[in-house]
Write a protein that binds this DNA or RNA. Structure first.
Lengths: 397, 397
DNA sequence: TTGTATGCGTTATCAC
DNA sequence: GTGATAACGCATACAA
């Protein structure tokens, strides 16, 4: 019934003969002359584990436990152990218990690389965001993690530093891990990236902004429209000398600038002297710096500012406080993103709320559904935004 | 010279005979009776790719390009292609160019799972942080990513939500990916986690706090000492009714509370009526809420507050502004972490600076060094902190 | 319900 | 410098 395996070391030139006999199959392997030692054959090779890192203290080198070890201890075959792990109902209760016990005793942890290789399922979702230090993206990430975790997927996260070229490299790297789905930020991928993604044949969600021609799926909103609406609100409240402050000026910042320009044009208020931008990253300090630039550039005639994000807006607000320039009486300020601080500073800051967390959740759900083979009715989701008008843009009578 | 492979389909019961003839080896495989079709044999099975996710638009199902495909196109063996990728100097220039060309033409991307399995090197560093929404940790992450990227390592990031039990699960999951190193937060792992990590035989760095008995490596500082020093500073400046505000109250928050208590005791100023804490997470709103609690609880006699982090401190500061309670004249406020906002609000907030980014960098360097087999002189790094005294704790004469 | 044989795509080992 | 072979650990297909 049971198979027999005999390994007999013979000589230097006739290393071994393996004779396997199954019930109805015959496999005969004869090897003559010196062959290299099979890596795993315990009889010949006892350094089963590669030498891993030397750890400061002398960590005992323990051989990794495999399915086969568990199977042996439980007195079943490897595939049965595999079933206990992946499909317990297909195994009888008694055997299952024995196997579970063996797993516990050995502290067996399945090797995902082997599993991925054998099943063509990596259980990995790749995610690329432009920045780790911008909490807008970390909130999106929270949404993603909250969905992937319970679904048994791991996230492989990468930071493109706002660079499409770096993103291209990252996509290549991520694809090497054979992710089952990808979530990437925005729509400004290089042509090579798009080609890579199309060939990868895995669902891809582009998030954070509405994309004209999504690769597969898109969850976002129009930054141009959001900025347009907000600026329109401000002009309707009577602000005329309305400036713009922008940093980093990535695609989404550009779209917001576009919205600002459109609204100002429509109201006949355009004035390029009221626009200050920098390619350097946003920060509170940068908000203060840009504010001073704007003051200088506009010769003090600016009465309100639309900032491309809350960091800049708060930076400007704090700078106004320092200069004893009353907000909103002398200077109205408006931000974008509606981070928690916006509502809590004094005066509370007007801002555009965007559903960061929800974008992460929705995109992940769509990707997971696609992985499960479902065909979503909607592949482009516009998740909108909300104007949050607060005291910082209150018009004085 | 070259090996020959013949696959001949014969009948239903005698499916195939493979006859391989090497120069000095003879391998003879005979199979009798119906066997299932080997998955990879093109002659018998042409659906080489598993059916991946159905993607909204009809994505053409493309077979994944493998080493063998590249090898075939370049007219070399697979192992040579592998060398071109991993060890180019061992391949002659001519062949290298042909192979590179083939790689480009086919858009070949190596499969990391297969590579990891064969080489026992995953190229993965596992990272566990307690929270994705706390920018303290995302700055640490930046430090980690800045080191792993150039070194060719991928980060597998997990969020333990401040729970040691969740952390234990995550460690188990991460170990399944056979990471080459691990970076985890703090020292309050469960016993099971510690055992898992010891058995894993990979370098582990515990960060964010000084740990008594690190598993292997530790990069952090004493939260107790930092809080103690800051509170001592404040008492030395003459603040007596000095309160404490804490949220979440994870181990590091507890240590800060300890430091506060020690300093207050030493000065004979202890008063539990001046301590307010909550297990709920920190936020600006929570800072305001705790501040109101503290005012109620202390019947308004509190003159200064040491907050367990900047979020609470800023929340309290903004609440003071709203209540027209002058800071620091009527109420001195001090935070912890020294986030950017601390220095920029009005009045600027005193806080304890901690080298977040550097901790990520250092821990990663140590782990990567250990992976490379280096034995670090120091396994416990105390990276210190700095008191940043600002206007919010200025004593009035 | 359980087991056998084999392949997944890569790399280590050794031969030439 | 280049190639043939086996092995990494698991899961699929199929047989019993």
């Amino acid at each position: 019934m049971a198979q027999q395996v005999n390994n007999c070391r013979c000589s230097n030139r006739l290393r071994y003969i393996v004779w396997l006999s199954g019930s109805a199959n015959i496999i005969l392997v004869l090897r003559f002359f010196a062959l290299r030692l099979p890596r795993g054959l315990k009889e010949f090779n006892n350094k089963k584990t590669r030498k891993p890192a030397l750890i400061p203290h002398n960590i005992p080198m323990s051989k990794r436990i495999t399915l086969a070890d568990v199977a042996e201890l439980a007195g079943v075959s490897a595939i049965t152990v595999s079933r206990v792990i992946n499909n317990p109902v297909k195994v009888s209760a008694g055997v299952r218990e024995r196997v579970d016990h063996a797993i516990d005793r050995l502290g067996y942890i399945p090797n995902r690389s082997a599993s991925a290789l054998a099943s063509a399922r990596s259980g990995i979702i790749g995610v690329i965001i432009p920045s780790l230090s911008n909490s807008v993206f970390t909130e999106v990430l929270r949404g993603i993690y909250d969905q992937t975790g319970p679904a048994g997927f791991q996230v492989l996260l990468a930071d493109s530093h706002y660079s499409p070229l770096e993103e291209e490299k990252l996509v290549r790297t991520l694809l090497g891990q054979a992710p089952e789905g990808l979530i990437i930020t925005g729509g400004d991928q290089t042509e090579a990236t798009r080609k890579l993604l199309r060939n990868a044949a895995i669902p891809v969600a582009q998030i954070m902004e509405s994309v004209e021609d999504p690769i597969h799926m898109n969850v976002g909103f129009s930054h141009r429209a959001a900025a347009f609406d907000m600026v329109k609100q401000l002009t309707q409240r009577g602000f005329q000398r309305l400036g713009f402050m922008g940093a980093r000026m990535d695609t989404r910042a550009q779209q917001r600038l576009q919205g600002y320009r459109q609204a100002m044009n429509q109201s006949g208020l355009s004035d390029d002297g009221l626009i200050v931008t920098t390619p350097r990253p946003s920060s509170l300090a940068m908000g203060a710096e840009l504010f001073r630039s704007l003051m200088a550039q506009s010769q003090g005639c600016c009465e309100a500012i639309f900032c491309v994000n809350d960091d800049l807006a708060l930076g400007a607000l704090f700078e106004c406080q320092r200069m004893h320039l009353a907000v909103p009486e002398k200077m109205a300020i408006c931000g974008f993103n509606d981070m928690e601080a916006a509502a809590r500073v004094n005066p509370p800051l007007s801002s555009v709320y965007v559903p960061r967390y929800d974008m992460g959740v929705q995109a992940t759900q769509m990707v997971l559904a696609a992985i499960a083979g479902e065909v979503p009715a909607e592949t482009k989701v516009n998740c909108g935004y909300q104007l949050r008008m607060r005291e910082s843009t209150q018009r004085q009578h």
